[in-house]
C-alpha cells in the first residue's frame, strides 16, 4: 500500500507543476549567436566543417572557422555537448535534450526531451552510427542501439564508491522507491566520457574517474587522491592519460596511479584537447590555457572569459568560450 502511494503522489506533483506541459521551443536566430556562451565544438567528419553548440539552443556551423551560420533548431535549451560522426551529428544538453542531424548539421530533430527530469545531459558519444551513450547530471546515463531513435536510461552504481554502494544495497531490500530516489541523489554528475583505444574513460563529480571495457555497461572506479570534480579525462595522441578538474587540479595516470601535476592556477580546467603536431592543450576558466609540455606552460587570454573546449582546425586553435568563438594565438 505504502509503496503504491509514492508514485501516485509524485504523479500528482508533476501534473500540477508547469513543467509537464513544457514543449520544446524553437531557438531564435540571433546576430550575436557566435558571441554567445558556447560549450562544445567539434569537426564534422570529412566535410572539413566545424560545429559548435551552446546556450539558447544555438547550433553554429562554419566551413572556415571565421564566419558562422546559425542553424534552425527545434529547442532553445542550453546545449552542452556535440558529437559528429560523418554526416550524423548528435547534440545534447539541458532538459535532457538530444538532437540529431543526419545531414551534417543542416536540419535537426528532437530525439529526446525530458524537462521533468530537471537534469542536464553533459556529454554524448557514439561508437558507430547506431550505438551511443549520453551522460549527465546525477548519474544520468542514456544508451541507444538504434542511432538514437530510442534512448534507454541506465543506472551505474559501479560509479559510486564502496560505502555508497553498500548504503544503497541496504535500502534496496526495504523500500524500492526510496532506493531509486536516493540513488538519483547520490550518483555523481557525469561530466565527460572519452575513448581510449577500446576502452571508455569517464570523469565526474566528487573525484569520480572511471574506466569501462564494454562500452560503458560496467565501470571500474579509479582511485585518485582528490575529492573535487573532474571535468575531462582524455588519452593524448602519445598515449598518456590526463584528468582535469576543479581549481586547477590536473592529474596524469601512470603506472596504475594518478599523479598530481602542479598547475599554479586555481581556475577550473574544462577540457583537454589533442592538437596535431603540438603538445596537448588544457582550456580553463578565467581565460587560462595550459600547454602540457615537459614543463607546463600557462597562458591567459586578454578578456579572461572562461574557455570551455577547443578544436584544431586549419592550423588554428579555435575555442568555445563564454564570449563565443575565439582563436588562441599564443
Amino acid at each position: 500500500m505504502k509503496k503504491k502511494l509514492i508514485p501516485l503522489f509524485s504523479a500528482l506533483i508533476f501534473s500540477s507543476s508547469s513543467i509537464s506541459d513544457v514543449r520544446p521551443q524553437e531557438a531564435f536566430q540571433a546576430p550575436l549567436a557566435d558571441k554567445s556562451l558556447l560549450l562544445d565544438i567539434s569537426q564534422i567528419g570529412q566535410k572539413q566543417q566545424l560545429i559548435a553548440v551552446g546556450e539558447r539552443g544555438h547550433i553554429l556551423t562554419s566551413a572556415d572557422g571565421q564566419s558562422w551560420e546559425q542553424q534552425e533548431v527545434p529547442v532553445n535549451a542550453v546545449l552542452t555537448a556535440v558529437y559528429a560522426r560523418d554526416k550524423h551529428i548528435w547534440a545534447a544538453g539541458h532538459d535532457a535534450v538530444i538532437l540529431y542531424s543526419g545531414d551534417g548539421g543542416e536540419s535537426w530533430q528532437v530525439q529526446n526531451f525530458n524537462p521533468e527530469l530537471q537534469k542536464p545531459l553533459l556529454d554524448v558519444l557514439f561508437f558507430d552510427d547506431q550505438h551511443g551513450i549520453a551522460i549527465g547530471a546525477y548519474g544520468l546515463f542514456y544508451r541507444t542501439e538504434n542511432g538514437g531513435q530510442s534512448w534507454n536510461k541506465e543506472a551505474h552504481i559501479s560509479l559510486l564508491n564502496e560505502m555508497d554502494v553498500e548504503y544503497l544495497e541496504s535500502l534496496k531490500e526495504e523500500n524500492m522507491a526510496f532506493y531509486e530516489s536516493e540513488m538519483e541523489a547520490i550518483l555523481p554528475h557525469l561530466n565527460r566520457v572519452s575513448v581510449a583505444g577500446d576502452k571508455l574513460l569517464l570523469a565526474g563529480e566528487a573525484g569520480t574517474l572511471a574506466i569501462s571495457e564494454d562500452q560503458g555497461r560496467n565501470w571500474q572506479r579509479m582511485d585518485v587522491d582528490y575529492y573535487g570534480s573532474f571535468f575531462d579525462i582524455q588519452q593524448t595522441t602519445d598515449g598518456r592519460i590526463f584528468a582535469a578538474g576543479l581549481r586547477g587540479n590536473l592529474f596524469e595516470y601512470s603506472d596504475e596511479q594518478w599523479l598530481e601535476i602542479e598547475t599554479g592556477i586555481s581556475s577550473t580546467l574544462n577540457s583537454i584537447v589533442n592538437i596535431e603536431g603540438k603538445p596537448p592543450l588544457v582550456v580553463a576558466n578565467k581565460g587560462y590555457y595550459l600547454w602540457l609540455e615537459d614543463s607546463l606552460r600557462v597562458e591567459q587570454t586578454d578578456d579572461e572569459e572562461a574557455l570551455v573546449n577547443a578544436v584544431f582546425f586549419n592550423n588554428k586553435i579555435l575555442v568555445v568560450s563564454e564570449a563565443g568563438i575565439q582563436e588562441l594565438t599564443k
Binding site: 542550453v78 542536464p120 553533459l122 570534480s229 577550473t268 574544462n270 576558466n285 572562461a306 570551455v308
Partner: peptide
C-alpha cells in the same frame, strides 16, 4: 555548480 559554464541556466 562549481562555476561550471555548462550550468549557466
Amino acid at each position: 555548480n562549481e562555476g561550471n559554464p555548462k550550468w549557466r541556466v
